[in-house]
Design a protein around this nucleic acid. Structure first.
Lengths: 314, 314
DNA sequence: CTGCGAGGCTAAGGCAGACTTATGCTCGAA
DNA sequence: TTCGAGCATAAGTCTGCCTTAGCCTCGCAG
């Protein structure tokens, strides 16, 4: 690089700074992990580049000149301050984690649990941003992402959380009517369906019914899945969702399975983060905590789930 | 070099600093005389080395993170202070010149003239150290040296001042006696000789006398040549010295030539300085001034000197 | 709405600068 | 007097830095 701002070679300044601070080229070489010849060479380079004599040479030792002492003082201070700023930046960075996650996952599963993470890691502040789009982790805006998919994303490490499952869920008072309705083909449905039509189609295919429910079978059309769940809790119909994600609602009796069988599409929920970040302590802590929570959630949801049936590809 | 003090690559920090200060990689690349790809690469390296995300990436632009802003502030300050310290060091260095010179040259010729240099270059402080030994200019203790010799010193630039001349000099009242004594061979000397015996031997050889004056011909033995001159001025004998160096004494009539002929040994007085320093402004100013003074001194001394005779090699 | 330009990103390859090695110098201490 | 330590330099090696090429996204102008 050309020095447009007339700052000489930084590598040479660093060699000089170490020599000035330690009082000799041999000690500087040892600290920098190089040879005394390299330090000598760099100090000479610096003197040539700047036209300033930095050291008086005597046999066996060197002594800073007045000009050299002036630069040394500033260089020592500058490098010390820089070093300190990197440490403070690392501490700042280590003290907060930025997560991008899917809306329902965030609202219904993650958010209720974050209190526990905060209790166990009070030094780490959490930021969650919900997005239906997969955010670019390379852009640096997020440390980790919760993704739904196959788990094979280049440059990322994906930790499996739990499989994507689709189970009919309704309020307790709708149980009998919904169970009866779902025992037959889609055209026999006489209770309102809630949630994504493609997920219902997937579920019926897993039951052996090729034709999906027609639009007239659906009740309220809501923008987000957790709103579907809220409507179902209110008795407005049967929703289709993950017994793991809604595990706490099932536990509390606010939702019940309207059918014992769940369908799956081969996808799963994953924690993803850049391979380049796998040494990050905070990401490691979050990963370990999240894996633990996911395992507990899978275990707890097992009582609601019979053997999940993988739906044939439409 | 290994980073024993955990400061990451300085080249990368410099790229980062420029990008932070200018708000983009393209502008930073322009200032640093490199490509945006190089800046991007260095910022990534820095992020990997430190584990700190420094920029958020967006299409067409980048934005400092909080941690990045923290480091940027310190880096901008550090580099600015370093730059400033080099400029101040250069100014300090440019404001003083260190000279090593031969004793007599210093005392009798240089010192009386330095007032003129100081008047013409008030911003440059002069330090003269007298030494009979040739000081190592590479050690950085001296900027320039006045040397006597052949002028061919490796790594140094030598500017000729004036030839080394040896002429008998005495007080006016001793003129006739000294002239008569010096007209014949050394054994006929009946006035005390002062100064270095080897210089007298050289002078007599130049006159065609093979045998040097014997020790009994010498008066007071003094340690330094200018003391010999002082003794000669006091009428204690005839000294042997340079009519150029003692030009002002001749001019003032305190010394007169005891013989019209000067001898020379093929050597001269030179201003020497390191080739590596030839761009130094202060050295240039001193060289130009000294050359001018030397030329004036040669010119003024011409009236005292007949055709100098080169003494045959003993 | 389409095309272009600008800024950023990464991979691969080349080379120049950084460093090592070898040798030499000086001086102080044993 | 000898040896070891620190500094200096030259020459050769090699690795880190940079360039080049190609790609991506987005905003703006036509």
């Amino acid at each position: 690089m050309l020095e447009t701002a007339r700052l000489p070679s930084l590598v040479s300044i660093r060699a000089f700074e170490a020599a000035a601070r330690l009082g000799g080229f041999a000690l500087a070489a040892r600290e920098l992990g190089t040879t005394a010849a390299a330090v000598s060479y760099h100090v000479r380079q610096l003197e040539r580049q700047t036209g300033v004599t930095l050291f008086h040479r005597y046999p066996h030792r060197v002594e800073l000149t007045a000009a050299g002492a002036l630069v040394a003082e500033e260089a020592i201070r500058a490098f010390g301050a820089l070093r300190s700023s990197f440490m403070r930046a690392a501490a700042l960075e280590a003290g907060q984690i930025s997560i991008t996650a899917l809306p329902t996952f965030s609202t219904s599963w993650l958010a209720p649990r974050l209190g526990d993470f905060r209790a166990r890691h009070p030094g780490i502040r959490i930021e969650v941003e919900v997005s239906t789009d997969a955010q670019d982790l390379g852009a640096g805006r997020f440390d980790v992402a919760i993704r739904n998919g196959h788990g094979r994303w280049p440059g990322l490490r994906a930790v499996p959380l739990f499989p994507a499952l689709f189970m009919p869920l309704c309020a307790p008072e709708l149980r009998d009517a919904a169970s009866a309705a779902l025992a037959g083909p889609p055209e026999a449905i006489n209770v309102p369906l809630l949630g994504r039509p493609d997920w219902w189609a997937l579920w019926f295919r897993a039951q052996g019914h090729e034709r999906p429910p027609t639009p007239d079978r659906f009740g309220i059309q809501l923008a987000e899945e957790h709103l579907d769940a809220a409507a179902a809790i209110s008795g407005h119909g049967v929703t289709i969702g993950s017994p793991i994600i809604f595990g706490r609602e099932l536990e509390a009796g606010r939702l019940v399975p309207a059918h014992p069988r769940a369908a799956r599409d081969g996808r799963a929920f994953w924690l993803a983060y850049p391979l380049a970040r796998q040494d990050s302590a905070k990401i490691g802590l979050f990963r370990d905590w999240l894996s633990e929570q996911a395992e507990a959630a899978r275990h707890a949801a097992a009582r609601w789930i019979g053997e999940p049936v993988e739906a044939p590809v439409a």
